[in-house]
Amino acid sequence: MPVYSEKVMEYFMNPRNVGEIKDADGIGEVGNPVCGDMMTFYIKVKGNRLEDVKFQTFGCGAAIAVSSMVSEMAIGKTLEEALTITPSMVAQELEGLPKNKFHCSNLGAQALRKAIRDYANKKGIKIKGLEEKGEEDEEGEES
């Protein structure tokens, strides 16, 4: 078993914000290109803020802890702020991840970004931080 930090263990054992938002304003689903796992993020937007974020994850302990952490970090943030969440920020909040688990931390930020993009597309709005990165960057980025 990989050596996980206490924080990872805590977020894995007691994950926050698990589930689906039935009337979500945006949904982002990503597959892990490395090991084939999946993560889905659901967002609820009020004003310009993420009122609620929920996730579903098919993956390892780190992937579950990551999604849990990302959801917690994102809730209450404005859409622009949420887009600044990077995989390394997530890893840092989790007090580090084993090297071969870094790729799991990419998933969370990607899935959240994708959910925000989905929201923007539906609304036909532009959000700062979204247009700078192409779709390919989001899919392919690896640590």
């Binding site: 078993m1 894995f12 993956g59 390892c60 992937a63 579950i64």
Partner: peptide
């Protein structure tokens, strides 16, 4: 089906 082994291992270990 539908879930991953490492996560199961960790919960079983606990």
């Amino acid at each position: 089906e539908f879930i991953e082994g490492e996560a199961m291992l960790m919960l079983l270990n606990s």
